[in-house]
Design a protein around this nucleic acid. Sequence first.
DNA 1: AAAATATAAGACAAATTTTATCTTAATTTG
DNA 2: CAAATTAAGATAAAATTTGTCTTATATTTT
Lengths: 147, 147
Amino acid sequence: MNISRASDYAIRGLVYMAKQPAGTVCFVKDIAKNTNSPASFMSKIFQTLAKSGIVHSFIGTKGGFTFNVQPENITIKTVIEIIDGPILLNRCAVNKSACNEIDNCDVHYMWADIRKILIKALNAYSIADFAKDKKNNKEVLSEVINF
Amino acid sequence: MNISRASDYAIRGLVYMAKQPAGTVCFVKDIAKNTNSPASFMSKIFQTLAKSGIVHSFIGTKGGFTFNVQPENITIKTVIEIIDGPILLNRCAVNKSACNEIDNCDVHYMWADIRKILIKALNAYSIADFAKDKKNNKEVLSEVINF
DNA sequence: AAAATATAAGACAAATTTTATCTTAATTTG
DNA sequence: CAAATTAAGATAAAATTTGTCTTATATTTT
Protein backbone atom coordinates (compact mmCIF):
# COMPACT_ATOMS: atom_id res chain seq x y z
CA MET A 1 0.00 0.00 0.00
CA ASN A 2 2.50 2.55 -1.17
CA ILE A 3 2.99 4.87 -4.07
CA SER A 4 5.99 4.13 -6.26
CA ARG A 5 9.32 5.86 -6.06
CA ALA A 6 8.67 7.00 -9.62
CA SER A 7 5.48 8.82 -8.64
CA ASP A 8 7.22 10.33 -5.67
CA TYR A 9 10.02 11.61 -7.93
CA ALA A 10 7.48 12.92 -10.43
CA ILE A 11 5.63 14.89 -7.76
CA ARG A 12 8.85 16.30 -6.33
CA GLY A 13 10.09 17.18 -9.80
CA LEU A 14 6.91 19.00 -10.69
CA VAL A 15 6.96 20.84 -7.36
CA TYR A 16 10.51 21.96 -8.11
CA MET A 17 9.35 23.28 -11.49
CA ALA A 18 6.39 25.06 -9.89
CA LYS A 19 8.78 26.92 -7.62
CA GLN A 20 10.63 28.45 -10.57
CA PRO A 21 9.35 31.65 -12.20
CA ALA A 22 6.41 30.88 -14.47
CA GLY A 23 7.50 29.78 -17.93
CA THR A 24 11.02 28.72 -16.92
CA VAL A 25 12.36 25.94 -19.09
CA CYS A 26 13.77 23.32 -16.70
CA PHE A 27 16.50 20.79 -17.48
CA VAL A 28 16.12 17.22 -16.26
CA LYS A 29 19.63 17.56 -14.88
CA ASP A 30 18.55 20.35 -12.55
CA ILE A 31 15.23 18.75 -11.65
CA ALA A 32 17.05 15.57 -10.68
CA LYS A 33 19.72 17.37 -8.71
CA ASN A 34 17.16 19.30 -6.70
CA THR A 35 15.06 16.25 -5.88
CA ASN A 36 17.86 13.80 -5.05
CA SER A 37 16.84 11.47 -7.85
CA PRO A 38 18.80 9.71 -10.62
CA ALA A 39 18.83 11.94 -13.71
CA SER A 40 18.35 9.07 -16.13
CA PHE A 41 15.34 7.83 -14.21
CA MET A 42 13.90 11.31 -13.92
CA SER A 43 14.38 11.69 -17.66
CA LYS A 44 12.17 8.67 -18.27
CA ILE A 45 9.57 9.99 -15.86
CA PHE A 46 9.44 13.36 -17.58
CA GLN A 47 9.12 11.67 -20.96
CA THR A 48 5.98 10.04 -19.61
CA LEU A 49 4.71 13.31 -18.16
CA ALA A 50 5.31 15.00 -21.51
CA LYS A 51 3.47 12.28 -23.40
CA SER A 52 0.50 12.74 -21.08
CA GLY A 53 0.36 16.42 -21.96
CA ILE A 54 0.81 18.00 -18.53
CA VAL A 55 4.28 19.28 -19.42
CA HIS A 56 5.76 20.38 -22.71
CA SER A 57 9.21 19.25 -23.83
CA PHE A 58 11.70 21.16 -25.95
CA ILE A 59 14.53 19.31 -27.63
CA GLY A 60 17.95 20.76 -28.26
CA THR A 61 20.25 23.28 -26.62
CA LYS A 62 18.22 25.34 -24.17
CA GLY A 63 15.58 22.65 -24.42
CA GLY A 64 13.86 21.24 -21.35
CA PHE A 65 10.41 21.15 -19.79
CA THR A 66 7.70 23.68 -19.02
CA PHE A 67 4.18 23.25 -17.67
CA ASN A 68 1.55 22.67 -20.29
CA VAL A 69 -1.20 22.55 -17.65
CA GLN A 70 -1.21 25.06 -14.79
CA PRO A 71 0.28 23.55 -11.61
CA GLU A 72 -2.97 24.52 -9.87
CA ASN A 73 -4.77 22.07 -12.14
CA ILE A 74 -2.37 19.15 -11.73
CA THR A 75 -3.51 17.09 -8.78
CA ILE A 76 -1.55 14.38 -7.02
CA LYS A 77 -4.02 11.85 -8.36
CA THR A 78 -3.31 13.02 -11.92
CA VAL A 79 0.43 12.51 -11.47
CA ILE A 80 0.11 9.10 -9.85
CA GLU A 81 -2.19 7.84 -12.57
CA ILE A 82 0.12 9.09 -15.33
CA ILE A 83 3.13 7.37 -13.82
CA ASP A 84 1.70 4.27 -12.17
CA GLY A 85 -1.56 3.81 -14.03
CA PRO A 86 -5.08 3.73 -12.61
CA ILE A 87 -5.61 3.50 -8.88
CA LEU A 88 -7.41 0.22 -8.32
CA LEU A 89 -6.52 -0.86 -4.76
CA ASN A 90 -7.61 -4.40 -5.46
CA ARG A 91 -8.63 -6.38 -8.49
CA CYS A 92 -12.36 -5.87 -8.14
CA ALA A 93 -12.51 -2.27 -7.05
CA VAL A 94 -13.67 -0.74 -10.28
CA ASN A 95 -15.90 -3.13 -12.13
CA LYS A 96 -17.28 -6.49 -11.21
CA SER A 97 -16.09 -8.08 -14.42
CA ALA A 98 -12.51 -7.79 -13.21
CA CYS A 99 -13.35 -9.68 -10.04
CA ASN A 100 -12.61 -13.35 -9.88
CA GLU A 101 -15.74 -14.01 -7.89
CA ILE A 102 -17.79 -12.17 -10.49
CA ASP A 103 -21.29 -11.51 -9.14
CA ASN A 104 -20.54 -12.97 -5.80
CA CYS A 105 -17.68 -10.86 -4.51
CA ASP A 106 -18.01 -9.98 -0.85
CA VAL A 107 -15.55 -7.13 -0.74
CA HIS A 108 -16.39 -5.39 -3.99
CA TYR A 109 -18.39 -2.52 -2.51
CA MET A 110 -15.91 -1.88 0.23
CA TRP A 111 -13.02 -1.42 -2.15
CA ALA A 112 -15.04 0.75 -4.47
CA ASP A 113 -15.93 2.85 -1.45
CA ILE A 114 -12.41 3.21 -0.09
CA ARG A 115 -11.12 3.91 -3.58
CA LYS A 116 -13.57 6.81 -3.96
CA ILE A 117 -12.41 8.34 -0.71
CA LEU A 118 -8.76 7.93 -1.58
CA ILE A 119 -9.21 9.47 -5.00
CA LYS A 120 -11.02 12.44 -3.50
CA ALA A 121 -8.15 12.94 -1.09
CA LEU A 122 -5.53 12.66 -3.84
CA ASN A 123 -7.49 15.15 -5.93
CA ALA A 124 -7.66 17.62 -3.06
CA TYR A 125 -4.00 18.55 -3.43
CA SER A 126 -2.40 20.16 -6.47
CA ILE A 127 1.23 20.65 -7.39
CA ALA A 128 0.80 24.38 -6.88
CA ASP A 129 -0.05 23.83 -3.21
CA PHE A 130 3.52 22.81 -2.48
CA ALA A 131 5.21 25.70 -4.20
CA LYS A 132 3.61 28.04 -1.65
CA ASP A 133 4.93 28.96 1.76
CA LYS A 134 5.46 25.75 3.66
CA LYS A 135 3.63 26.80 6.82
CA ASN A 136 0.39 26.52 4.88
CA ASN A 137 1.14 22.91 4.11
CA LYS A 138 -0.61 21.48 7.10
CA GLU A 139 -2.82 18.48 7.29
CA VAL A 140 -5.85 20.18 5.89
CA LEU A 141 -8.27 17.47 4.96
CA SER A 142 -8.06 15.24 7.97
CA GLU A 143 -8.80 18.21 10.22
CA VAL A 144 -11.83 19.27 8.23
CA ILE A 145 -13.29 15.85 7.52
CA ASN A 146 -14.27 14.09 10.68
CA PHE A 147 -15.58 10.65 10.04
CA MET B 1 -1.14 2.00 -5.24
CA ASN B 2 -2.62 -1.40 -4.64
CA ILE B 3 -3.01 -3.83 -1.81
CA SER B 4 -1.18 -7.11 -2.23
CA ARG B 5 -2.72 -10.32 -3.41
CA ALA B 6 -1.73 -11.74 -0.02
CA SER B 7 -3.82 -9.17 1.86
CA ASP B 8 -6.69 -9.76 -0.52
CA TYR B 9 -6.51 -13.50 0.15
CA ALA B 10 -6.27 -12.89 3.89
CA ILE B 11 -9.40 -10.73 3.89
CA ARG B 12 -11.33 -13.22 1.78
CA GLY B 13 -10.17 -16.09 3.96
CA LEU B 14 -11.25 -14.35 7.13
CA VAL B 15 -14.60 -13.47 5.59
CA TYR B 16 -15.11 -17.12 4.71
CA MET B 17 -14.38 -18.05 8.32
CA ALA B 18 -16.78 -15.40 9.59
CA LYS B 19 -19.56 -16.95 7.54
CA GLN B 20 -19.22 -20.28 9.32
CA PRO B 21 -21.03 -20.92 12.61
CA ALA B 22 -19.19 -19.23 15.48
CA GLY B 23 -16.36 -21.36 16.84
CA THR B 24 -15.99 -23.55 13.74
CA VAL B 25 -12.44 -24.81 13.28
CA CYS B 26 -11.55 -24.15 9.63
CA PHE B 27 -8.97 -26.02 7.57
CA VAL B 28 -6.64 -24.08 5.30
CA LYS B 29 -7.63 -26.51 2.56
CA ASP B 30 -11.26 -25.39 2.77
CA ILE B 31 -10.44 -21.72 3.21
CA ALA B 32 -8.26 -21.84 0.09
CA LYS B 33 -10.83 -23.75 -1.94
CA ASN B 34 -13.57 -21.27 -1.09
CA THR B 35 -11.48 -18.22 -1.93
CA ASN B 36 -9.82 -19.44 -5.13
CA SER B 37 -6.37 -19.14 -3.66
CA PRO B 38 -3.37 -21.51 -3.57
CA ALA B 39 -3.56 -23.59 -0.39
CA SER B 40 0.16 -23.43 0.30
CA PHE B 41 0.13 -19.66 0.00
CA MET B 42 -2.96 -19.35 2.16
CA SER B 43 -1.25 -21.56 4.71
CA LYS B 44 1.61 -19.07 4.97
CA ILE B 45 -0.85 -16.21 5.27
CA PHE B 46 -2.75 -17.88 8.09
CA GLN B 47 0.48 -18.62 9.89
CA THR B 48 1.10 -14.89 9.90
CA LEU B 49 -2.43 -14.15 11.03
CA ALA B 50 -2.03 -16.68 13.85
CA LYS B 51 1.26 -15.16 14.95
CA SER B 52 -0.41 -11.76 15.12
CA GLY B 53 -3.02 -13.14 17.49
CA ILE B 54 -6.21 -12.46 15.54
CA VAL B 55 -6.77 -16.16 14.87
CA HIS B 56 -5.89 -19.22 16.90
CA SER B 57 -4.31 -22.28 15.33
CA PHE B 58 -4.74 -25.90 16.36
CA ILE B 59 -2.28 -28.51 15.17
CA GLY B 60 -3.14 -32.11 14.41
CA THR B 61 -6.16 -34.03 13.22
CA LYS B 62 -9.20 -31.79 13.53
CA GLY B 63 -6.82 -28.92 13.86
CA GLY B 64 -7.28 -25.67 11.95
CA PHE B 65 -8.08 -22.05 12.67
CA THR B 66 -10.64 -20.17 14.73
CA PHE B 67 -11.06 -16.49 15.48
CA ASN B 68 -9.16 -15.28 18.49
CA VAL B 69 -10.52 -11.76 18.08
CA GLN B 70 -14.17 -11.23 17.19
CA PRO B 71 -14.63 -10.58 13.44
CA GLU B 72 -16.43 -7.37 14.43
CA ASN B 73 -13.15 -6.13 15.89
CA ILE B 74 -10.91 -7.09 12.97
CA THR B 75 -10.78 -4.18 10.56
CA ILE B 76 -9.45 -4.20 7.03
CA LYS B 77 -6.62 -1.97 8.18
CA THR B 78 -5.65 -4.52 10.83
CA VAL B 79 -5.43 -7.30 8.26
CA ILE B 80 -3.45 -5.28 5.75
CA GLU B 81 -0.94 -4.20 8.36
CA ILE B 82 -0.48 -7.76 9.62
CA ILE B 83 0.17 -9.09 6.14
CA ASP B 84 1.87 -6.20 4.33
CA GLY B 85 3.23 -4.16 7.23
CA PRO B 86 2.49 -0.55 8.09
CA ILE B 87 0.64 1.66 5.64
CA LEU B 88 3.07 4.41 4.74
CA LEU B 89 2.07 5.60 1.26
CA ASN B 90 5.40 7.28 0.75
CA ARG B 91 8.69 7.32 2.54
CA CYS B 92 8.07 10.46 4.56
CA ALA B 93 4.44 9.98 5.51
CA VAL B 94 4.91 9.02 9.10
CA ASN B 95 7.90 10.78 10.55
CA LYS B 96 10.18 13.37 9.14
CA SER B 97 13.28 11.43 10.02
CA ALA B 98 12.42 8.88 7.34
CA CYS B 99 12.26 11.60 4.73
CA ASN B 100 15.28 12.17 2.55
CA GLU B 101 14.71 15.90 2.58
CA ILE B 102 14.50 15.87 6.37
CA ASP B 103 13.16 19.23 7.59
CA ASN B 104 12.65 20.55 4.14
CA CYS B 105 10.20 18.10 2.65
CA ASP B 106 7.48 19.74 0.61
CA VAL B 107 5.06 16.87 0.49
CA HIS B 108 5.34 15.58 4.03
CA TYR B 109 2.11 17.07 5.37
CA MET B 110 0.11 16.02 2.36
CA TRP B 111 1.06 12.39 2.69
CA ALA B 112 0.47 12.39 6.41
CA ASP B 113 -2.94 13.85 5.68
CA ILE B 114 -3.95 11.40 2.98
CA ARG B 115 -2.63 8.55 5.08
CA LYS B 116 -4.88 9.55 7.97
CA ILE B 117 -7.94 9.58 5.74
CA LEU B 118 -7.07 6.25 4.19
CA ILE B 119 -6.51 4.62 7.55
CA LYS B 120 -9.83 5.91 8.82
CA ALA B 121 -11.52 4.44 5.78
CA LEU B 122 -9.77 1.08 6.17
CA ASN B 123 -10.74 1.03 9.84
CA ALA B 124 -14.38 1.72 9.03
CA TYR B 125 -14.94 -1.80 7.70
CA SER B 126 -14.60 -4.99 9.71
CA ILE B 127 -14.48 -8.61 8.62
CA ALA B 128 -17.91 -9.14 10.19
CA ASP B 129 -19.43 -6.60 7.80
CA PHE B 130 -18.94 -8.96 4.87
CA ALA B 131 -20.41 -12.02 6.49
CA LYS B 132 -23.78 -10.26 6.60
CA ASP B 133 -26.36 -10.08 3.88
CA LYS B 134 -24.68 -8.72 0.80
CA LYS B 135 -27.27 -6.07 0.05
CA ASN B 136 -26.02 -4.14 3.06
CA ASN B 137 -22.58 -4.01 1.54
CA LYS B 138 -23.04 -0.75 -0.27
CA GLU B 139 -20.67 2.11 -0.57
CA VAL B 140 -21.36 3.50 2.85
CA LEU B 141 -18.59 5.92 3.59
CA SER B 142 -18.32 7.78 0.34
CA GLU B 143 -22.04 8.54 0.47
CA VAL B 144 -21.87 9.86 4.00
CA ILE B 145 -18.64 11.78 3.73
CA ASN B 146 -18.87 14.56 1.23
CA PHE B 147 -15.64 16.40 0.90
C1' DA C 1 1.94 -47.58 19.75
C1' DA C 2 0.98 -46.55 15.09
C1' DA C 3 -1.31 -44.17 11.46
C1' DA C 4 -3.53 -40.32 9.75
C1' DT C 5 -4.20 -35.42 9.66
C1' DA C 6 -3.23 -30.76 10.19
C1' DT C 7 -0.39 -26.72 11.18
C1' DA C 8 4.69 -24.61 11.88
C1' DA C 9 8.72 -23.12 10.12
C1' DG C 10 11.90 -22.13 6.95
C1' DA C 11 14.42 -22.83 2.72
C1' DC C 12 13.89 -22.33 -1.99
C1' DA C 13 12.27 -20.68 -6.49
C1' DA C 14 9.54 -18.53 -10.02
C1' DA C 15 7.36 -14.49 -11.62
C1' DT C 16 6.54 -9.82 -11.65
C1' DT C 17 7.40 -5.16 -10.80
C1' DT C 18 10.26 -1.50 -9.80
C1' DT C 19 14.15 1.03 -10.46
C1' DA C 20 17.12 2.18 -12.93
C1' DT C 21 21.12 2.53 -16.94
C1' DC C 22 22.92 2.91 -21.50
C1' DT C 23 23.04 3.73 -26.29
C1' DT C 24 21.63 5.79 -30.39
C1' DA C 25 18.89 9.14 -32.67
C1' DA C 26 16.74 13.47 -33.35
C1' DT C 27 16.39 18.37 -32.60
C1' DT C 28 17.74 23.06 -31.59
C1' DT C 29 20.98 26.80 -30.73
C1' DG C 30 24.96 29.33 -31.58
C1' DC D 1 29.57 22.02 -37.56
C1' DA D 2 29.75 21.54 -32.43
C1' DA D 3 27.41 21.47 -28.21
C1' DA D 4 23.48 20.64 -25.51
C1' DT D 5 19.30 18.54 -24.63
C1' DT D 6 15.28 15.45 -25.02
C1' DA D 7 13.21 10.89 -27.34
C1' DA D 8 12.96 6.23 -27.63
C1' DG D 9 13.92 1.79 -26.79
C1' DA D 10 16.77 -2.04 -25.33
C1' DT D 11 18.77 -3.91 -21.48
C1' DA D 12 19.71 -5.05 -16.78
C1' DA D 13 19.89 -4.95 -11.82
C1' DA D 14 17.36 -5.08 -7.66
C1' DA D 15 13.50 -5.72 -4.96
C1' DT D 16 9.17 -7.54 -4.05
C1' DT D 17 5.53 -10.59 -4.61
C1' DT D 18 3.80 -14.91 -5.11
C1' DG D 19 4.18 -19.13 -4.54
C1' DT D 20 6.20 -24.25 -3.59
C1' DC D 21 8.35 -27.88 -1.10
C1' DT D 22 10.24 -30.32 2.63
C1' DT D 23 10.74 -31.53 7.26
C1' DA D 24 9.15 -31.17 11.87
C1' DT D 25 5.69 -31.10 15.40
C1' DA D 26 1.33 -31.77 17.56
C1' DT D 27 -3.22 -34.04 17.95
C1' DT D 28 -6.69 -37.47 17.21
C1' DT D 29 -8.25 -41.89 16.07
C1' DT D 30 -7.67 -46.65 15.80
